[in-house]
Nucleic acid binder design. Sequence first.
DNA 1: GCAATAGTGTCTATTAGACAATATTTC
DNA 2: GAAATATTGTCTAATAGACACTATTGC
Lengths: 248, 248
Amino acid sequence: MPYDPSAFPPFAVTVDLVVLTVRRHALCALVVRRGEAPYQGMWALPGGFVRADEDLASAAARELTEETGLRAHEQDNRTPGAHLEQLATYGDPDRDPRMRVVSVAHLALAPDLPSPTPGGDARSARWAQADALLGFGDSDGESKTPLAFDHDEILAAGVERARSKIEYSSLATAFCPPEFTVGELRRVYEAVWGVALDPRNFHRKVTGTPGFLVPSGGTTTRQGGRPAQLFRAGGATLLNPPMLRPEA
Amino acid sequence: MPYDPSAFPPFAVTVDLVVLTVRRHALCALVVRRGEAPYQGMWALPGGFVRADEDLASAAARELTEETGLRAHEQDNRTPGAHLEQLATYGDPDRDPRMRVVSVAHLALAPDLPSPTPGGDARSARWAQADALLGFGDSDGESKTPLAFDHDEILAAGVERARSKIEYSSLATAFCPPEFTVGELRRVYEAVWGVALDPRNFHRKVTGTPGFLVPSGGTTTRQGGRPAQLFRAGGATLLNPPMLRPEA
DNA sequence: GCAATAGTGTCTATTAGACAATATTTC
DNA sequence: GAAATATTGTCTAATAGACACTATTGC
């Protein structure tokens, strides 16, 4: 097949964002309400067109900043901001009824934000529990409200990526503020996985993995009880051996 | 930002393929020679435009068939054919000098093919050792021939995906024919990782993991020595505990 | 017999997970 | 003191990795 750049089918390319955080001991995703057709009035993932002179990561970072005010840092997690990585690309011919749109989905992990309604955008936006969006919140799994387009599928992929990736990487620290305690990090794992972990074994595991956590020197009592050491994320991004998720 | 489908920057969308196989105890990738500018005469990954009515997985499967004659099966690996999965998407504004092209890279894993030069395409195509393409084949790492466009980066991502994914999944069986011995599967791991594994511990590990391998009943002596049992890939796609790659 | 590969058994150092016990705070 | 959380220590069952040994073929 000759590679003919002058005769190609035209596509629109967008980025969609799965922005996850941990609030009130639950994994939450950012959703925005659609103001226009199609799917008017339904909740959707934030996103938008990739501009003509912009690469995909920049477009995702720009959308993230527009929606949440967060800056993205793709590699180190020592500066404040959100972790951002590419997730997967969705391009079914009829995923958007108006035209052919290919969406490059990205996953962003953010610490709990002070503002309850994030972003300065005019559209209404909210944090919704991931389990509720995915239909696991109610006893009746059928009563969930679907997201617009194929965003349920994208959200599910993002949540699963986050759940599996914190097993073998230090990504869980992306849900924490720059300084955090071992207990706070453990509550992140518990919220993301939806399980209870043994605090003593967890403590020994994370403090015993070289390069995972480095003490910042301070302590805090913000969780009550005995003061806990404050840590920052260390340089190690891959955990070996991994933190094992208790079997489902 | 209003979502305006009538005023979007136009993109071309392509699929590029990282097709990997194991030949003569080495991990090899399929490359094709470019017949036209840009990068004329250089080696590149196979790929092509996504058609107007085609989803991304179908486009990748079509390209794979055109290049290798293999059919793709995305899930089960009990039917002959190649494993195919989406890898990542590349969209730097200047990755193609002619126009704005977003490429959705896919990873295909195939058993060793009988035909030395695969595909019926008029372009010349060949299997090249992955290490040589990535610049690890020679003692002089600088002397490698780069691939066209950003295909070196895409190839590196595909190879790394394959190397890491056979740790915790049964994906290595995608490099084997439908029936294979434990020793043949071990040689796949050794070729992909570039390490030697203990045959006895490997045997105990893979035969002791429920659902990984199912005996097909037959035996073969095609490797010499004592006849070996033949197996097929079992239903288990996730290995728990994983097959650990010896530390680098 | 010799060489080659397949397959089983055994030992040891390490580790995951259960859980006792102690430390330090707020109320 | 009671309650809460942090942190350390100890025990046990399971496991990864090293490696001895046996089995079955072709030459």
